[in-house]
Write a protein that binds this DNA or RNA. Structure first.
Lengths: 388, 388
DNA sequence: CATTGTAAATTTAGAGCATAAATAAAGTTG
DNA sequence: CAACTTTATTTATGCTCTAAATTTACAATG
């Protein structure tokens, strides 16, 4: 959005800075916030007092003195409001209610979807949202909003442009939810991008300024965080790296391209490799791998290698500190991990390997719901940044 | 940089907004600037008057009245200062002196470099810089700085971390130049990233908010502009997309990886394809192609196709509005163009093709020098942006 | 236990900037 | 030439940050 500078903007920026310092370093005193952020003590006092009035911050009494007056310690009031996070999957969805620090209060996992018809799905989502809202603890701001991670391309207005697994085209999901819950903050984003935020804020991504999250399931989606911010790309719907070519003359993909990464490194690879054997799902092949069946082991190893090929490309493109692999394929970490790491090591520039870490998701299927919820929280607290 | 909000920041933001409006829409009146930017008329008047004092803006007298008082038209004073842009190549470098709007005043093209030894190269650069500075027209701010585009990985401090074609490792190029020209603004960036800025500001990239520049020469480098800003990536030196794998089991690359894009879509592909024929350079193969030699034509077509494969990956990753192909291979546009476009069309998602344009560089080898010069100009005028 | 020193938080006074409204300047138009 | 328009500046006001002074609250010390 086009923004000009005025005093309100200054205050917004500084409030955001102060609140973030409190969130990250609680319990913390006003004086510490001032010295840490570079803001003037008086400014911090003013801003904090307003945040106290708004109940976004709590004073929990005096802390340890360091030779003088005891500081009054501050906490981010994670119970000021609650938010709902939803991961829309294939055949089912998962919804959570969490507080402003991402602590899950209620969870409704794997609610089946009977029909992929968008109206039906939206009805179903709304029923669950209503149920969660009614069970939410009372809070100054109540349930502030609903964040949704959807499988497919989502534009900046929250329209699901294309979701092949749901058979959706141009579904105005955000608007539909907003209409049902007037006043609520609603966000809709791609499932992998929400997952990236989830891992970054609450999972394996702690503190990393630059990370890439790879959602490897029925296909491959990616979410990228650069400089502590979600990388939006042009028009807001980049991230179709699952359709990056890694075999120029490879198999035909449903997207029209050939040799797409997700053909070789997602569940799609199982069905393909198993054409002559009888593996049709990740579950099946994992069972077989447990029995040390050579075919299953080989297929899983190959998936690991191909995941590594794509990850190497991502590393060369974005040079992140951290790559996190999430979604269903993490269940096969045992078999995938080694070939994946070896491939990445072989295929990336030495200089990019420096300080690079590769992790599997630590949130166990909760990356997306938490990330979706976090997107609402970010809007609620009004995070604002300046680049010079 | 970590920034807190104060009045100085507000002024900086608004000055930047006003100046940009004048640069882009000159000649323009104060009133137009105000209505265009959303700034208050009084604010614009104040800021413009300061810019006039600073000689960054000129008043060129009254314009056409639209029914009332004639507006006083404003121009960006492109002669307020001059800047030097340098493209460091292999075996030679090119330097220009240009005004603040990128108009080239002096050009020293293809100055040979006798030895790649960094000290020698730096000496040589400094000689040319000194010569250009001494010939620069007199201006309020004189020659404000030096921008350099270097072939290789450059970090945010202007250190050339790795430039295989020069045999450089960890050369503190920016600091070296700064020491020789105290007070000058010095920037050092990767050649392709500078090229992206050059094309965006002065070339085929006009007005596009999201573009990718592909520098196809001895290797492949890329520069990406997203949301009107150079995409820096983690640590500032992303963009090694030339080493993206497009043939998982392809040829070995000097970077350690296999099947890197630049092996198939840069000059490297000529040497390789020509192992049994006698093409060793772009010039040779183009001569042969002029004579319709089938081998040459086939090789060039293939290069076009492989360029398309990589570009398709980039499109899926960044979803830009505009892709610009620059550097040496543009000379072979005649032969490359068609297979390239066809391949991209075949390999990208329909939704991404919507509104996508693919151009060849319009600046003819000047993308990088102009982009490098522009980086200095940007710092000089202090462009500042806010994201909400 | 009163004194001294220190740290935290608040108050005060001052300055910078943007803005709306009023005013001035310089046109056009019938 | 009077009425209307548009452009630019001036004025008065409000908001925010900041430095410095002040208040508050505690620790250490003889």
């Amino acid at each position: 959005m086009k923004v000009t500078g005025d005093q309100a903007l200054v205050k917004k920026i500084n409030t955001s800075i102060a609140l973030e310092a409190i969130q990250l370093h609680a319990p913390i005193s006003r004086a510490q916030v001032a010295s840490m952020t570079g803001l003037n003590k008086a400014t911090v006092s003013n801003l904090v007092n307003e945040l106290l009035e708004q109940q976004l911050v709590l004073e929990i009494g005096p802390g340890q003195s360091s030779g003088g007056r005891k500081p009054l310690m501050l906490l981010f009031n994670r119970h000021a409001g609650y938010t709902i996070g939803i991961e829309l999957g294939i055949g089912s969805f998962t919804a959570i209610l969490c507080d402003l620090s991402g602590q899950i209060v209620l969870e409704e996992a794997n609610i089946p979807i009977r029909s992929n018809e968008s109206e039906h799905v939206i009805d179903s989502l709304c029923d669950t949202i209503t149920a969660l809202r009614s069970q939410a603890p009372s809070a100054p701001y109540g349930t502030i909003g609903i964040g949704i991670g959807a499988p497919g391309m989502v534009d900046e207005e929250g329209n699901v442009l294309f979701a092949p697994n749901l058979g959706w085209r141009n579904v105005a999901l955000k608007r539909a939810i907003e209409e049902r819950f007037p006043g609520a903050i609603v966000t809709v984003d791609n499932e992998a991008r929400a997952g990236a935020i989830g891992e970054w804020e609450y999972g394996a991504g702690e503190k990393a300024q630059h990370l890439v999250y790879i959602s490897a399931g029925a296909g491959i989606g990616t979410g990228t965080i650069i400089g502590g911010e979600l990388f939006k790309g042009a028009y807001g719907y980049s991230g179709e790296m699952g359709h990056m070519t890694i075999e120029a003359n490879g198999r035909k993909c449903s997207c029209g391209n050939r040799g797409c990464w997700e053909l070789y490194a997602s569940e799609k690879a199982i069905a393909e490799a198993g054409k002559n054997v009888s593996y049709h799902s990740l579950e099946e092949i994992m069972q077989a791998a447990e029995q040390d069946e050579p075919n299953a082991l080989h297929t899983l190893h190959q998936i690991g290698e191909y995941l590594g090929v794509g990850i190497a490309n991502i590393i060369n493109t974005f040079n992140p500190e951290l790559v996190i692999i999430g979604n269903k394929l993490t269940q096969a970490e045992r078999w995938i991990r080694k070939p994946l790491l070896r491939t990445v090591q072989q295929r990336t520039l030495q200089s990019h390997q420096h300080g690079l870490q590769i992790h599997f998701s630590s949130l166990q299927q909760r990356s997306t719901v938490l990330g979706a919820a976090n997107q609402v929280i970010q809007l609620f607290v009004g995070r604002t940044k300046v680049s010079v």
